[in-house]
């Protein structure tokens, strides 16, 4: 799951080839992406992991790191 998320992020960030995104890197704070990318992350997470994120969980904090997104996906998979 984390690798799938990482792969999506790496395909959508403008960083040098030797930059690696760690699981706890805040991709917004580090400037890898702008907040315009948030909706794409939400769409990607929902489509790729076949979940629907409730409106109360649609907050930047849940999409800022690979760890946070993995935790979010895990929460909904537990429910299903």
């Amino acid at each position: 799951m984390r690798e799938k998320i990482r792969e999506f992020i790496m395909a959508n960030v403008n960083v040098d080839e030797d930059t690696a995104v760690k699981d706890d890197d805040n991709i917004f704070r580090l400037g890898y992406v702008s907040s315009l990318f948030a909706m794409r992350l939400l769409n990607f997470i929902e489509a790729s992991f076949a979940i629907t994120v409730d409106d109360e969980d649609i907050a930047l904090v849940n999409f800022s790191t690979i760890d946070a997104m993995a935790k979010l996906v895990g929460k909904y998979r537990t429910y299903s």
Partner: peptide, 16 residues
């Protein structure tokens, strides 16, 4: 949406 999600999610979704 949630407090603070106005630009990152609501405005961005609307503008899409």
């Amino acid at each position: 949406g949630r407090l603070g999600a106005g630009f990152s999610f609501v405005a961005n979704a609307a503008l899409f």
